[in-house]
Design a protein around this nucleic acid. Structure first.
Lengths: 199, 199
DNA sequence: TCCTCATGTGAACGACAGCAACATGCCGCG
DNA sequence: CGCGGCATGTTGCTGTCGTTCACATGAGGA
């Protein structure tokens, strides 16, 4: 990162994305304002259009990719932290851990996550972070361990994702946002129990 | 409804809400612009502030209440349409019908529903439409018919709501928005199966 | 050294939220 | 019947923001 105040910035794109991520964390998608962020970075608004030809929408897509990467990382770490000697038990606990990580991330970063929801990735499919792919892996592991019948494997990811995604949104910015911490944990456990039993 | 073009409008508040509902149906929350809607109704922007002291936010809350009322009505109708002679079977099918109605409404009116999500009601608790209350009624019926163990009744509404809410959002404006109709139906069935088994 | 193109600037336009001071007319009170 | 007050609307302004255009600058290669 160059602190030098030259005519050319050095890494304007990264600086703008970083500023946008900060604004989104604090105030959600509506707080990401191209004009204000360009000024914050020390650059005219028009300069931002060199790096983001479609303007604000491009910036929000890049910001959403940061959120998706953070989410995928959070899930991967929490899953990897689950250890044990019984493979079936590990598979089951890792599946729960992935759901829990999703809810935790959305609860901690509701504004940034909202950007990811509303603005699809600007990266090519191979490079884009893919939280959903991690869920598919967990479900495959459940099938391998005999915890999920193979005939129920199709569309299982949709059902599980829907439950966890909905719960996360209700807790983070929906009707359950005011729930005290103890009841939040109960709600998460109750929902994951339902998913586990019902999948 | 007065068509008369007098100095005083007659029912400006209702006219603005109706215009806002139309805009939200077509383009979501960001399409609701106080200035443009006031012009559409044939009134200056400042006039709208007489009826909505907090400006745009107030208008969006009132618009969200229309969405919540439509949703509650949709659910109530679909539930009431389920008839049969076996009370347990009726309770089970009515529970599914309420979830299906939720998904259908969100899929058909994603823009209007998004307003309801992001902007809480401006009505006193007693008068506000309450889709969630209808779900609680369905769950109570399941307990009465012995389809849901009483010890699982607490927080069951959270789990069921989360699954249906998440599914609706994924289908309406999320990653599953492009799914063809046949697979959409399968996704809904698969998710409701999970909820029914797992609750 | 000079040329070129990426990068950045300043100015301008239009849409919009919100506020303030002024205008209008409906309705009730004397 | 007339008059005055208050709800209702209006014009006009300020500030923010997205977006575009013509122009300026400077870094690096021919």
């Amino acid at each position: 990162m160059r602190t030098r105040a030259s005519y050319h910035h050095g890494d304007l794109r990264a600086a703008l994305v970083a500023a946008a991520v900060g604004a989104a964390r604090a105030g959600g998608p509506d707080a990401v304002k191209l004009t204000a962020l360009a000024a914050e970075v020390g650059v005219s608004a028009a300069a931002a259009y060199r790096r983001f030809p479609d303007g604000l929408e491009d910036l929000l897509r890049a910001t959403g990719d940061v959120a998706r990467a953070e989410l995928a990382d959070r899930i991967a770490r929490k899953v990897a932290a689950v250890r044990g000697s019984d493979p079936a038990d590990v598979a089951r606990r890792r599946f729960r851990a992935s759901g829990l990580a999703y809810v935790e991330y959305v609860s901690e970063q509701p504004g940034l996550f909202a950007v990811a929801q509303r603005h699809p990735s600007c990266l090519p499919p191979g490079e884009a972070p893919d939280p959903h792919g991690l869920l598919e892996q967990r479900l495959d592991a459940l099938v391998v361990e005999g915890l999920l019948p193979a005939e129920r494997r199709p569309l299982a990811s949709v059902a599980a994702w829907a439950a966890v995604h909905g719960l996360a949104l209700l807790l983070a910015e929906g009707a359950l946002a005011q729930l005290p911490a103890a009841q939040r944990r109960q709600a998460v456990d109750r929902t994951l129990d339902m998913v586990e039993r019902g999948l």
